[in-house]
Computed example of a mutant assay.
Amino acid sequence: MTLRFPARVDRLVRRLPPLPLTIRLALSHVAVLVVALMAMSVAADTFDVFDRRGLVGRPGHVDFDPLVGSALTVGATAALVLSLVFSRFLLRPLRRVRAATHRLADGHYGDVLGVPREPGLAALVEDVNRLAAALADTERRRARLVSEIAHEMRTPITILSGQIEGIADGIFAPDDAMFASLTDDLARLRRLADDLSSLSLVEESAFTLHPAPTDVTALAQATAERLRPQFDDSQVALHVTPGPQVTTLLDPGRITQVLVNLLGNALVACDPGGRVSVTVHTNPDPTAHVEIRVEDTGIGITDHDLARIFARFERIEHPGRPAPAGGSGIGLTIARGIARAHGGDINVASLGLGRGATFTVRLPLRQTQSA
């Protein structure tokens, strides 16, 4: 049941100036005391109404009116003073939380607040500590990404600079092999720029999609065949399960980008002799959607990493196995952002290290005529 105040009272309360929490606590104590004394006064008056036989003035009779007035004065003063004193102790954890949030705003994420004994304040402090830890982890990954991207950019830029200067000085011959090398280095720089641009679109939820009626099964098969030479070079089997035609409205370029990322990650996760399979099927539960499943027999993912694998700047590293070179740690973040921009999502499942992983892309089935 919700307590509703009359409109006039509500407007009057809204016109009152904002008061500090300390003053509010003090006034609440005083208000409780006043209500208690008023109740005592009403009880005394009720007692007098029932006792109308001249009890007032008899020996032993107590006159309640002076007592109520004195008790109200003394009690209100004591309640005001004590409430002001005790409110300082009650508000001390809140002041610490406020100071901690100011330090977080200034970029100091390492401070950990002590958890008070009060359950309500303890939950608030734990949330602030959890926020600080999350911000610290994001800042750590962002700094690592900036360093790695700077390294990734420095290498092709240095090579390009040396090759162009060599061509200008006549040291290198401008033949097809030289231009192919220049094209590869430019492609690396373009890929980094595209990744950062896509990440910005994901963060701002500003993806511009160009939906068209697309056969999802054919799109998955074409993408897999496009990457098959890389799988053959790595001696990893790539199997695409034939399926019926599933046509829906989506941006084929963006979904291809998602599949390239998932297949590339699956290839990196597998050792020679491994296997990656791609399947497409529809599912009516809870709403009609199409699922693209990319399953590998690679190194697998731990439960801890499953919870953070889609976080931006995150690169999962395994003992004895270096992270893939050139990875920016934002591919899965971008892939999930593209799927969600279509109204779908991406989920991952794994039975643990050494037992492979399965990524499932879910996209809604939309009628091409209605859209």
Rank of each mutant, 00 (worst) to 15 (best):
T2E: 14
L3T: 14
R8H: 09
V9D: 07
V9M: 13
L16C: 11
P17G: 07
P20H: 10
T22E: 12
I23W: 08
S28D: 01
S28E: 01
V32G: 05
V34A: 13
V35L: 14
A36S: 12
A36Q: 06
M38H: 06
M38E: 12
A39I: 11
A43P: 02
A44C: 11
F47M: 11
D48T: 07
V49P: 00
V49A: 15
G54P: 01
G57W: 03
G60A: 11
V62L: 15
F64N: 02
G69W: 09
S70A: 12
A71W: 01
A71F: 08
L72T: 12
V74W: 12
L84W: 06
F86L: 14
P93H: 10
R95V: 10
R103G: 00
L104E: 02
Y109A: 08
R117I: 10
P119T: 09
P119F: 07
V125R: 03
V125C: 08
V128F: 00
N129R: 11
L131K: 02
A132P: 00
L135F: 07
D137E: 14
E139T: 10
R141H: 06
R144F: 01
H151P: 00
R154K: 10
T155I: 10
Q163P: 00
D169H: 06
G170P: 05
F172L: 14
T183A: 15
A187N: 11
L189C: 07
R190W: 03
R191D: 15
S197C: 04
L199T: 09
S200N: 13
E204C: 04
L209Y: 08
T214E: 02
D215V: 04
L219R: 05
A224K: 00
E225Q: 13
R228K: 15
P229E: 12
D233F: 08
D233H: 13
Q235N: 13
V236H: 05
H239Q: 10
T241Q: 13
G243C: 06
V246G: 01
L250E: 01
L250R: 00
L250F: 01
Q257Y: 10
L263H: 03
N265W: 06
L267N: 03
V268Y: 12
A269Q: 10
A269R: 15
C270W: 02
D271H: 10
P272E: 11
G273S: 08
V276R: 04
V278P: 04
T282G: 15
N283W: 04
P284W: 09
D285E: 15
T287K: 12
V290K: 04
L306Y: 00
A307S: 04
R308G: 03
F310T: 07
R312P: 03
E317T: 09
G320V: 07
R321A: 06
R321K: 13
S328L: 14
T333N: 04
R336W: 01
I338L: 14
H342C: 11
N347L: 11
A349H: 13
L351R: 13
L353K: 02
G356E: 05
G356I: 03
F359C: 05
L363E: 05
L365I: 15
A371I: 04
